[in-house]
Design a protein around this nucleic acid. Structure first.
Lengths: 204, 204
DNA sequence: AGACTTCCCCTCCTTTAGTAGGAGAGCAGC
DNA sequence: GCTGCTCTCCTACTAAAGGAGGGGAAGTCT
C-alpha cells in the first residue's frame, strides 16, 4: 500500500497521472495538490511514499523546489513529471536524487510503465541524460534544507530581516546561513545568489 | 548607400544574413561582429544605418542588450534576428522600438523581403505579435542609456564601487542612478533589479 | 531664450549586508 | 560513549547599500 502525492497545477494532467498510477496495479492512496508549499505541508504531515512532482507550478518553477524537497526529505521517492524536454533539466533532476523523469508528452501507458519501474526500485530517465555532474547542481545539493529556504527567499528579493520573520528565526541566524550559502556556492553577495536560482528556472 | 552591421555569434548565420542583405539589391557596406560590446563600439565609431541583431550572443543574451542600443542610439534602425519563436519576445522587441523581427527559421528569400520592407520604412513583425504594451518592457524603455548600463552591471552581481570603476564614474553617481532605477522599475533593492534582467533573458 | 533631459557629483544620514569567531542544543550514526 | 552535522544564537565589527535633497554642465527641442 503506497501513499502517492501528485503535485501539479494542471487538473487535467493530475487526472492523467491518477490514471497512470491506478493502472500500475498497485494499491495506492492518492493525494493531490497544486502548489509547492502545499506539497511541503502534505509531505510533512501525511508522509507519502512517492511524490509525482511537476517542476513548473505557481509560486516556484524550477529545480529549487525539487532541491528543497530532496534535501528536507531524502527518504521520499520523487518522480519529476514535466513539460520540459530539456536534457540539462533532466540530468539536473537526476543529480538532485529524483528516481525518474517523465516528459508530459509521454502516453499514459508509458507513464504507467515508468511508475511501475520506479516502484520496483529502478531509475527511469531518458537515454540522453548526461552523466557528467553539473557544477551548479552539485553545489545546490550541498546546501542544507534551511539554507535552501533562505536561498529561495533571497532570490525573491527579501531582506535578511524579512527572511528571519518568515522562517521564525533571528536575523543573526539568517546571516549565518547566508554566509554559509555564499561559501558553498562560491559567490560573494545576495544578488549573485538570486541569479543562481534564476538559472535553475524552467523556461516557458 | 547603407552601412549595415550584422551582430551574430554564429558564422554560418552571418553568411546567410550577408546573402539576404546582398539580395535586397541595395548598395550596402557590411560590417560584422560577434558580441554585444563589439556591436556597441562599432555603432559608436562607424555609425551604421541598420543593425541586424541576434538576441542570444555570448556575454549578453536577452532583451537588455536591445534596450541598451535603442536607448543609446534611438535613430539607429534595428532588426532583430533570433532563434526564438516566442511571441512574448517578439512583442517586447517591437515595444523596444525595433523595426523588425525575423525568426532564424525563415528562408533567405523571406529575410531578403523583410529587409527590403524595413529599408522602405515598413515594420516587419509576425502577425501573432501582441499589441498590448508589456509593463516590464515599458518600464525598461523608460530608463536612460546610462541607467541601463548600471542595471546590467547590477544584474551581474557587481558592487556600486565596481560599477563606478567600470563606467568611470564616482560611486556616488552610481548610487544616484541606482536610486532612479529603483523608482522607475518600482522595486526596492538590487536583488530584485537583477531578476528584472533575468526575466528578459531568452530561454535556451 | 526657456524648458527639459540627462548625466555627473556632492553631503548627510540611516539601514542593510557581510565578516569573523564562537558556542550551545538536538539528533543521527557508529 | 563519541563524532559529525544542523540549526540556532551571540558579540563586535566593517563595508555596502540606500534615501533625501541639491547643484552644475551639456545637450536638445520648441
Amino acid at each position: 500500500m503506497y501513499r502517492v502525492l501528485i503535485a501539479d497545477d494542471h487538473p487535467l494532467f493530475r487526472r492523467a497521472l491518477r490514471e497512470a498510477v491506478d493502472s500500475t496495479g498497485e494499491d495506492c492512496e492518492l493525494i493531490e495538490c497544486e502548489q509547492l508549499d502545499q506539497a511541503l505541508a502534505i509531505i510533512t504531515h501525511q508522509q507519502p511514499d512517492l511524490l509525482l512532482l511537476d517542476l513548473k507550478m505557481p509560486g516556484s518553477s524550477g529545480l529549487a523546489g525539487l532541491a528543497q524537497i530532496r534535501s528536507a526529505y531524502p527518504e521520499l521517492a520523487v518522480v519529476v513529471v514535466t513539460a520540459s524536454e530539456d536534457g540539462t533539466v533532466a540530468s539536473r533532476v537526476r543529480q538532485l536524487g529524483a528516481l525518474g523523469f517523465i516528459p508530459k508528452s509521454a502516453s499514459i501507458e508509458t507513464m504507467t510503465q515508468a511508475l511501475r519501474s520506479v516502484l520496483q526500485g529502478k531509475l527511469v530517465f531518458p537515454e540522453f541524460v548526461s552523466q557528467t555532474p553539473d557544477e551548479l547542481t552539485r553545489k545546490l545539493a550541498s546546501l542544507t534544507p534551511q539554507q535552501l529556504k533562505v536561498l529561495v527567499l533571497i532570490s525573491e528579493g527579501a531582506l535578511n530581516k524579512q527572511i528571519g520573520y518568515t522562517l521564525d528565526i533571528k536575523e543573526t541566524t539568517v546571516k549565518s546561513h547566508v554566509r554559509d550559502i555564499f561559501r558553498k556556492l562560491d559567490i560573494i553577495n545576495r544578488t549573485q545568489a538570486a541569479m543562481v536560482i534564476q538559472q535553475l528556472q524552467i523556461p516557458d
